[in-house]
Nucleic acid binder design. Structure first.
Lengths: 230, 230
DNA sequence: TCAAATTTATGATATAAATCATACTTTTGT
DNA sequence: ACAAAAGTATGATTTATATCATAAATTTGA
């Protein structure tokens, strides 16, 4: 892997909330790994053996449904923790994680991670808060899925992507997504996404290029979200 | 309130996971209250001032959308905690809680509850696990909303209700729900629910009476859930 | 570098479920 | 105990979006 990527500083919930004395223990127990674009970090039904922290790159957390369909639960970037699904031995992942680009990860096995939680109440507290907030966001998604139509959900998805990944110099949101991934994130088909994106472009609310999105009229897009009850 | 109801033993995550020494402190700081059927425990946009534990009765956690529509996020019964949405001052509820029948609650204010978390790492740990599991269940709901059609979602909803509330002597799930509540839980309209329930009854998979459901062929109902990709 | 595979755009058609409408039943509050 | 309000069943119509189909554009890897 490239130097620049390897040099990325780790800044994740674990490093931020565990006691400084424990940090060296973490470093002694961690493993570093690289997953190539398109390759799985873990897959549904795999036994949970550890937890991952993204050092660089991007990952989608998704769930298969039947043969062809999938739903993207969330996207993860540098600093994000993935793969921890609560306590309990012998658990299997209810979701898959797949690299959207070459991605560097740090891995801790479950016994060590849970020992870390026991020793660092502040970390446990921060993690509880993290899950409580994720839950709130996911509940909102259920509601949107139930009551908002596709166009509003697409608008909201684009705004979420902007919040999560930020924009680059040219104003494009810093993640490349296929129409299929976008469809899986919004919960619709790629044909419908294709049409909806074309429509939003025709209305000059967004621009797209190289599988990226740029916001042209963010406020109007946000208004679209609000007024899109079914 | 009736004697029998008042005599209910409290068994909730707080009592289960906080240190015995702390229990008396909790009891000194708690308030007990009763909310009548149909009345709110708290409402969307209220400032979060405390957390509630249900002693007896049943509550729905729901979110309004526009004027008429709502989505029921979850149901809560005896022992369940409601109203805690992570740390942070000045937070407002993103959801409402409304009593489905007369309900007795214990209330703790946020400063005391968060002090309790600080003092009882095991409780924090249990709460983190609780939220991680809730998150997993809610993610599954997002997926079902995206890919499963109404009939499958209704079947799944009925199975969830059975798990959560159990069945009485006559085989009926121990909660009374209007068609509108059922629709809000499944994420559809009451007309569609009415039709779907009629259909499931005609197929002899369920029976209904007095706003309650009884399972006649649980396995077939579960199979319906599996095979109901859109 | 080129052929194969994947991704995209867009049109035509089918369909699940929303909406509109009406009559009937049950629950609630005074 | 009764009138008003809320809830339910079911039919008719509309609509958003899935599905099917085709062709063009882009990406991939040998």
């Amino acid at each position: 892997m490239k130097e620049k990527q390897e040099a990325a500083s780790d800044n994740n919930i674990l490093y931020r909330y565990c006691m400084p004395e424990w940090r060296a223990t973490v470093d002694a127990n961690r493993q570093l790994l690289v997953v190539k674009k398109g390759q799985p970090v873990f897959s549904e039904q795999d036994v949970v053996k550890g937890v991952f922290f993204i050092r660089w790159g991007k990952v989608k957390i998704h769930q298969r449904w039947g043969n062809e369909k999938e739903l993207i639960i969330r996207f993860a970037k540098k600093g994000d923790m993935i793969g921890y699904r609560g306590l309990g031995k012998g658990k299997v992942y209810p979701v898959s994680a797949t690299a959207l680009e070459d991605t560097g990860l740090m891995y801790l096995d479950i016994p060590f991670f849970e020992a870390t939680l026991q020793v660092n109440p502040r970390l446990t507290y921060a993690l509880m808060d993290f899950y409580a907030n994720e839950l709130e966001a996911t509940e909102k998604r259920v509601r949107n899925m139930a009551h908002m139509e596709v166009k509003g959900r697409v608008a909201e998805a684009i705004l979420m992507l902007k919040d999560h990944f930020g924009v680059n110099d040219e104003g494009y949101i810093d993640i490349r997504l296929t129409r299929q991934d976008m469809a899986s994130f919004v919960g619709t088909t790629y044909e419908t996404i294709s049409r909806t994106i074309s429509e939003l472009e025709a209305e000059k609310l967004i621009r797209t290029s190289d599988k990226r999105f740029a916001l042209l009229k963010e406020k109007q897009l946000a208004r679209l979200v609000e007024s899109n009850a079914r």
